[in-house]
Amino acid sequence: MRDAGRASGAGHDEVDRLVAAWRRERPDLDVEPMEVLSRVSRLSRHLDLARREAFADQDLDGWEFDVLSALRRAGEPYQLSPGQLLRETLVTSGTMTNRIDRLTSRGFVERLPDPADRRGVQVRLTDEGRSVVDAALEALLSRERQLLAALGDDDAGRLSALLRGLLLPFDAPDGS
Rank of each mutant, 00 (worst) to 15 (best):
P113Q: 00
A56L: 10
P33C: 02
V91W: 01
L37E: 01
S105F: 01
I100H: 04
Y78P: 04
A135G: 08
Q122H: 04
A149L: 10
G120W: 01
G94E: 11
A139D: 07
W63M: 14
L147P: 10
T104E: 14
G62I: 15
S93C: 04
R111D: 00
T126D: 04
T92W: 06
T92E: 10
L140M: 12
R26D: 09
R143K: 13
V109K: 02
V36I: 14
D101H: 13
V121P: 02
N98Q: 07
T126M: 05
F108E: 02
S69P: 04
E32A: 12
L60P: 13
A149Y: 11
R52D: 15
L86Q: 15
E128K: 13
A70Y: 04
S41W: 12
G107Y: 03
T104Y: 00
V91P: 03
A139S: 14
L141C: 10
N98H: 14
S131M: 12
V15W: 02
R130T: 00
P115M: 03
A20F: 00
E64C: 05
R72Y: 15
Q58V: 13
N98F: 10
V40D: 00
L125F: 03
V133I: 06
Q84N: 11
D57W: 10
V133L: 01
L47D: 08
L80M: 15
G129P: 11
D30G: 01
R26E: 11
R42M: 10
P113E: 02
L71A: 10
D114T: 05
V123M: 01
Q122C: 00
R118H: 03
Q146D: 15
E144I: 08
L140Y: 14
R17K: 12
H46G: 00
R99G: 11
L85D: 13
V15Y: 00
E88L: 05
V40A: 11
A50W: 02
D134M: 02
P82E: 05
G75T: 09
D134Q: 11
G83V: 11
G83C: 04
A136Q: 01
L90S: 12
P77N: 12
L140W: 09
R73Q: 14
L137Q: 15
L148W: 09
Q58P: 13
E138N: 08
R119E: 09
E53C: 00
R72V: 09
T126H: 08
D117F: 06
L18Q: 03
R73P: 05
A116Y: 02
D117S: 07
A135K: 10
P33E: 03
D117N: 11
S93R: 15
A149Q: 15
L137K: 13
R26T: 06
Q58Y: 14
G120P: 06
M34N: 00
L71E: 09
E25Y: 07
L49C: 02
D59N: 14
G75W: 07
S105H: 07
Q122I: 05
E128Q: 12
Q58G: 12
L60Q: 14
R17V: 12
V19A: 09
E110I: 09
S142Y: 08
S38R: 13
A56W: 10
L71T: 03
E128V: 11
L140I: 04
L37P: 03
D30F: 09
E138D: 14
D28A: 13
E128Y: 07
